[in-house]
Amino acid sequence: MFATSPRLRATVLRVAQSIPVVIGVVIISFLLTRALPGDPAVYFAGVAANTESIEQTRVAMGLDKPLIHQFFVYVGNLLQGDLGQSLTSGRSVATDLAKRLPASLELTLTALILAIVIAVPLGVLAATRPGTWVDHLCRVIVTAGVSLPTFFTGILLIYIFYYLLGIAPSPLGRLDFIYLDPDHVTGFYLIDAALMGDWETWRGAAKQLILPATTLALFTLAPIARMTRAAMLTALSSDFIRTARAAGLSNRTILYRYAFRNALLPVVTTLGMVFSFTLGANVLVEKVFAWPGIGSYAVEALVVSDYAAVQGFVLAMALLFVALNLVIDLLYTAIDPRIGFSSK
């Protein structure tokens, strides 16, 4: 894949480019939490605190020091993996995030995979058969997907599959209380359970996951399907498709090897965008399904001005986005041979 050196160089450069972004993210997440309204010292000192004890807390937390000094302390702690102490949970923020981030990621990734598996073939079919029932179905699903908010589809799905039909388990968290949590390896219950060979737990986790994942998938399906359809239509009307047809290549080769690979580029871009806004949309779905994810954690922390937790959340999300963009760019390099030359 990286046989030619310009592409390898572009890849290395791209990875190097994300380092200043990470530094920027650290600075901004620090400043952002300092800019939040409210005085953390007042909260930390407790309800019964007087001016004196608040001041003591302030000194104890290092908040009396100049901002630049606080920043270096923060970075120093960060380098040791210390994100501070959460006020609400009483645990360290790093522990909380390690527990909750995989929950959100498992939900988001499952939803995204589900959406891709449905939306991409749907878009391809709609593009190859414009004006037929597949095309119309695609349009209906796309319209429904964008117009129905996730909290609504979530509640509707719970109503139908849990309340009316009774086939779904109660929408409370990642695993029913009758199962034990699998050993923590990756934090993804499906993977951890499979690693243990505990298929009973695996099924339990999958059952819990299916409704929230479907809810999110319905929402993310729309842009992916629409972009796939548009990109395929553009690719199929290109000159090189005519060349391939005139050379007698089979429809399958033309469709997949020629049109689809070229259509992938805009689809991958859309996937990156969809992934980021799905992480945002997560909050509502997590609330509806009592999913112990990072979204609900952040909202709770924000409400009580738990600034270490908020700071940790912002940092984690930002790093996730940086990593995501990096992956998307590297995917681009893998798909499009022209990229290695155009990047500086």
Binding site: S238, F240, A246, G248, N262, I335
Partner: peptide, 18 residues
Amino acid sequence: GREISMIFQNPRAALNPI
């Protein structure tokens, strides 16, 4: 391709770019 084949104008666009 085997009996009758074609070449086109704008050759760069007539080839699969990737």
